[in-house]
Nucleic acid binder design. Sequence first.
DNA 1: CCAATGTGGTTGACATGTCAATTATAGGCG
DNA 2: CGCCTATAATTGACATGTCAACCACATTGG
Lengths: 161, 161
Amino acid sequence: MPPRKGRTALTRAELDSWRAFIETTEELRTAIEGRLQSDSGISAGDYRVLLELSEAPERRMRSSHLADAIGWERSRLSHHLGRMEKRGLIAREAAKGDNRGAEAVLTDEGRDALRRSSVPHFHAIRELFLDALTPEQLAAARDLAETLSGHLAGKRGATAP
Amino acid sequence: MPPRKGRTALTRAELDSWRAFIETTEELRTAIEGRLQSDSGISAGDYRVLLELSEAPERRMRSSHLADAIGWERSRLSHHLGRMEKRGLIAREAAKGDNRGAEAVLTDEGRDALRRSSVPHFHAIRELFLDALTPEQLAAARDLAETLSGHLAGKRGATAP
DNA sequence: CCAATGTGGTTGACATGTCAATTATAGGCG
DNA sequence: CGCCTATAATTGACATGTCAACCACATTGG
């Protein structure tokens, strides 16, 4: 029988492809995050939280629901909400049905910060990402994302159920 | 004339592709870094530094050269080398020709840590990345990396020369 | 009812990253 | 030589991320 996948050492081409891919996506991420920070004074984490809250009913969400929605650990979210609260971007209130719980609420200031950031952020996405790619490449990027995302989801379920 | 690139708002498909791509690559990165940390007790930053030093003549490099090679700011490297030195993975020595300079040297312990980490790390790359992709998708990933990397390099030169 | 266990969330300790300021030396030039 | 500017690297302050420990309330079985 042929060797199974995952059994053989990496070829030079495989290693090169991996390094190019991971280093470039990392570079892209920091470039976009840097633009967001310098254009609008908010971090990528801030943006992610603001966006999710802005789309929630009444602009509020249970902490654990928010953490699930953006794929963060609860501890990370708790620290981040603390920092955002200190800056007035969100507020924290006790949850209605469960006295253990907390809800994060988007403040007017947070909503304004999100609005102000959107146009420059979209501009950066276009300039640094979309403008670089042909339609075929963009489709390939999406295909890659969906394939890898599905693969990772399977691994997560398989190794830590 | 047709509207220039970068002038129009993002379409839904463009935004969805961007989000899928950036969030998935981020997830992949943290997954691989987590494996490296739990398998071998070293961070992605440690690995990057150890690898670069291990391939340098006499396993030593000037700080600024090392920073350029791995694309880090010197301040970041200085902090990181300080932590690695404390753990015995590298040592710092004065540069020969220039009394301002510092050289980072790979210690035996650092070399051993790199060796021990390689097999599990390659295994993780295969399992979480290569195994997910068809040969065509891997080629597409490499093509995307090269296109985006070139594009970003152009932007860097254009906006901060 | 109430003790054991589970769940939601916070906290503290520490690793990592960025930015601006600082220190020390090099090199050019009057 | 002695000043001026540039370069190499470090430092401090602070934002962010992870992990493990913890607190408070909820739930449930006897």
